[in-house]
Design a protein around this nucleic acid. Structure first.
Lengths: 112, 112
DNA sequence: AAAATAACTAACTTTTAGGTAGGTAAGTTA
DNA sequence: TAACTTACCTACCTAAAAGTTAGTTATTTT
């Protein structure tokens, strides 16, 4: 009904996008996880071994969060002992190159 | 003395770079602050008005942290009432384009 | 029958991030 | 001389993130 552009709504939308971005990359372990899934699917135990410093609880919690955000997906094979694979979603693969470029920020500030 | 490449040292260095990256961009308000400083220096009070949701304590704390990281710098004019300006450093300007591109990550996952 | 396996869950504690409410300095303006 | 201004600081509190420890499940292997 109203064709005016409301700058407040624009601001709110940019804020939401920024928040979503931070949701995805912030958290001590999220980028480590995503980097490990960049090239191939990984089993839960594999991720544990690849990132040994993260606690089991936090790893699972972060995998869940990233799954809910739609960045990664989980595939359970019905086997015992269980087998579960995590991999990037389509959207996850879409942003993966940007995630890789992120570290160029840190590089600039090393030892400075 | 030892010309071998130690993959552990490489891994540690990548880890440090990643940690530095997260130091710079994580924190609820850091990117908001950096975005406001992208185009021009801003006074402390100006930043308060531009980002009214952040508490005074946290704003100052974040400005200090970003200053210590070498992303921004602070210029105090000897006046009363005080006048203080914050701006991006050379290195800060160097990474600013990357900081702007960051939000493309969030865009992909909006309402997904 | 006991032990091993992989991917979890639950209860609890510690650590870190962020927020609230108040105070201060020292000139300027009314 | 009282009130105002701006950029802080301090002590305290709450909430969120992360870590620790100890289960659980349901087959398979020994």
């Amino acid at each position: 009904m109203n064709e005016q552009i409301n700058p407040q709504i624009q601001a709110d939308s940019r804020q939401l996008i920024l928040k979503k971005t931070l949701d995805i990359i912030c958290g001590k372990w999220r980028l480590y996880i995503l980097y490990q899934l960049g090239t191939e699917p990984r089993r839960y135990g594999e991720l544990r071994r690849l990132i040994p410093e993260v606690s089991e609880k936090v790893l699972i919690q972060e995998l869940k969060a990233l799954t809910n955000l739609g960045v990664i997906e989980k595939k359970s094979y019905n086997e015992v002992p269980p087998r579960v694979e995590y991999s990037l979603t389509q959207k996850g693969r879409q942003v993966y190159p940007t995630l890789l470029k992120l570290t160029s920020i840190g590089e600039v500030f090393m030892d400075a």
